[in-house]
């Protein structure tokens, strides 16, 4: 009952009923308890001396990072080009793989809802669950270090991302347009070309550019596990404690990310 009575018998307005209120408080309590338990488990082996020492460490690292070693930039152009290629070629490869997967996964285009669709969805979720850095870790072990592993890692991670957003877009299309094309006696390929493709084109382009932007960020760190790009320089600079070089690399990464985000935003604005 949302209206209760106070001791004098006058009604008091309450937002929720008593039971709802109890449930809400219990829910919050459970969340706090969960947090406390997690916190205890997580910090079991934490060495607090290190934690309290962190500000001093931060200052120390900060002072070593400055001033940046600007001359190092000259050695970064090639890794930067590789990074760009990893992201772009990886995205292109992902698109080639993701489009058929999306059509197999969408409820309204899949050849079989019982057999094919679950497999396509599994491919999508497996690809999405595993970060590109982990894919890179695996691929470097299999293919050896280099850009090829990076491109494949980006592609394998992006298939799930593009596939998921694309199949959702396919499921949202206007069925009447497809029906009209079907009624002309068009073949299945023609139905996709005329009835479906025009409807999903804006979403498709937007998703691709969006993922490309994300891939630029991700490809900057793939080098940490040996999969090429500017991350390789970061890794070697960190290993040799060359902090002034690390600063330069981070600034370059930052600039790249900002430029790619700007490009992606402009392209997406132009599409819609």
């Amino acid at each position: 009952m949302p209206v209760a009575s106070d001791p004098r018998g006058l009604p008091i307005w309450r937002r929720r009923t008593t039971r709802q209120e109890w449930a809400l408080w219990l829910g919050w309590l459970a969340l706090v308890a969960l947090f406390a338990v997690c916190w205890r488990l997580m910090t079991e082996n934490t060495i607090w001396a290190f934690v309290f020492d962190a500000p001093r460490q931060a200052l120390d690292i900060g002072s070593r990072m400055l001033p940046p070693r600007w001359s190092y930039v000259d050695q970064l152009w090639r890794p930067l080009w590789d990074t760009l290629n990893i992201a772009t070629l990886g995205t292109l490869l992902a698109v080639l793989l993701a489009v058929p997967v999306a059509f197999l996964a969408a409820n309204n285009t899949t050849p079989s809802r019982r057999l094919v669709r679950p497999v396509a969805l599994l491919v999508i979720v497996a690809s999405r669950s595993i970060n590109s850095l982990i894919w890179a870790l695996l691929l470097v072990a299999v293919l050896g270090p280099g850009i090829a592993a990076g491109i494949l890692a980006i592609a394998l991670r992006s298939v799930g991302f593009i596939g998921k957003l694309l199949y959702e877009a396919i499921e949202e299309i206007d069925g009447a347009q497809v029906e009209a094309i079907t009624a002309t006696g068009a073949s299945p390929a023609q139905i996709i070309d005329y009835g479906i493709a025009p409807q999903i084109m804006p979403a498709f382009a937007g998703i691709t550019v969006f993922r490309w932007d994300i891939n630029i960020r991700e490809s900057t760190v793939l080098g940490l596990v040996g999969a090429g790009g500017i991350g390789l320089q970061l890794e070697s600079s960190l290993n040799t404690l060359a902090w002034p070089q690390v600063t330069v690399i981070l600034l370059i990464i930052l600039a790249t990310v900002i430029v790619s985000e700007w490009v992606s935003a402009r392209v997406r604005a132009a599409i819609t």
Partner: peptide, 18 residues
Amino acid sequence: VRRRIGMIFQEFALVERL
């Protein structure tokens, strides 16, 4: 057979972006 049967729809059902 379908290609010889023309169909006209309530909401027009044109492919909007073509």
